[in-house]
Design a protein around this nucleic acid. Structure first.
Lengths: 185, 185
DNA sequence: ATAAACTTTCAGTAATTTCTGAAACTTCTG
DNA sequence: CAGAAGTTTCAGAAATTACTGAAAGTTTAT
């Protein structure tokens, strides 16, 4: 399970970036290693390749499974468990988005809903509540939208992306195309 | 500069969430306080309201300015500097996205480009490089796409969001609408 | 030029997060 | 069921990140 120089660079980098993506250094490294390695890999091999303790490895793998980025893979005849990516790159990226949405947006949405239920006590609160409402609506849109993108799937998403600034123009014409749809402006 | 209960709850929550959004607790609290307070607020008032040291406040304000979420506001006749949000909610959310993209995606893109330049040394590396290439393309699409959304502006974005699953159907018809555009599937 | 009002910096401390490794646990095998 | 092979847990150590407060720095007013 020696890593080639290329894989080493990539793994180290994903470790560095790990914390920015919502997990810690070793979790990032483990993920990169499992994704870049075509063969299934055992926990012990992960620990050896990355030079981290067996305990830390176990926790990292557990976390990656809770993010649904990595899954166990049983090799017939082998006693130990092996690990492989839980899907293709698109799937993994989606899982990361989804999980982050749960951690970064959902709790705030829930608090905002609560805060917006109470009647404002005075002028100051009324104004603050108005802002909170704006934030709530924005987050709600982002959530709805990201769910929508997930349902589109990679090919259509790609079409949409390649469309570039065409999206704007298309929107202007949308009523002709989909006359039944909610007209906003 | 006493905070009302509503504002206190919101500020505390944004503090908790701060670290998930890319900054630390006090920076999150300061941001919430400045956004929810309609009047400009001085550094000293921030420190008092949040019960944090003057030094920490100064660093927090500096960071918020580097994210372009908060700006200085000079009150005529007053000696000290006041602070206000750098724009409306939409603008602020956009700045957060943009800044996070810089920190979370750009460095990886740059590394991936480098790693893809070298010829693979063997089978293992060839396969890893293929995966890295997929990741590169995905990140590139995400970047292009998020820039596109920013240019759309809030109203059109909202139209798009309200369109919901209509986006998929619209895409299927897009060639009729915009015949000049790049055909992907 | 001096002083008052205010801000920033930064060395040291506090708080938090991550990692290790030994012990406890779980399976499988003979 | 004994023990070998493997995994998980978790208390404490190490590393990282955030915060304080006193000293240095700025700016404005006189």
């Amino acid at each position: 399970m020696k890593m080639t120089p290329l894989i080493t660079s990539a793994v180290m980098h994903f470790g560095e970036m790990g914390s920015r993506w919502g997990f810690n250094r070793t979790v990032g490294q483990i993920l990169a290693l499992i994704v870049l390695n075509e063969e299934p890999i055992s926990a012990q091999e992960v620990a050896d390749a990355l030079n981290i303790s067996r305990g830390n490895t176990s926790m990292g793998l557990k976390e990656l499974q809770s993010w649904r980025l990595v899954k166990q893979h049983h090799v017939p005849g082998e006693r130990k468990e092996f690990f492989i990516p839980a899907g293709d790159i698109w799937t993994l990226a989606n899982r990361v988005f989804e999980e982050r949405r749960k951690r970064e947006i959902d709790p705030t949405m829930s608090l905002l809903r609560d805060l917006l239920l109470d009647a404002p006590a005075n002028e100051k609160e009324a104004s603050a509540q108005h802002k909170l409402n704006e934030i709530h609506d924005l987050l709600e849109s982002i959530t709805a939208w990201s769910e929508e993108l997930q349902n589109l799937g990679p090919e259509k998403l790609n079409t949409l992306m390649k469309l570039g600034s065409g999206v704007g123009r298309m929107l202007e014409l949308k009523d002709k195309l989909l006359p039944g749809k909610n007209s906003v402006n």
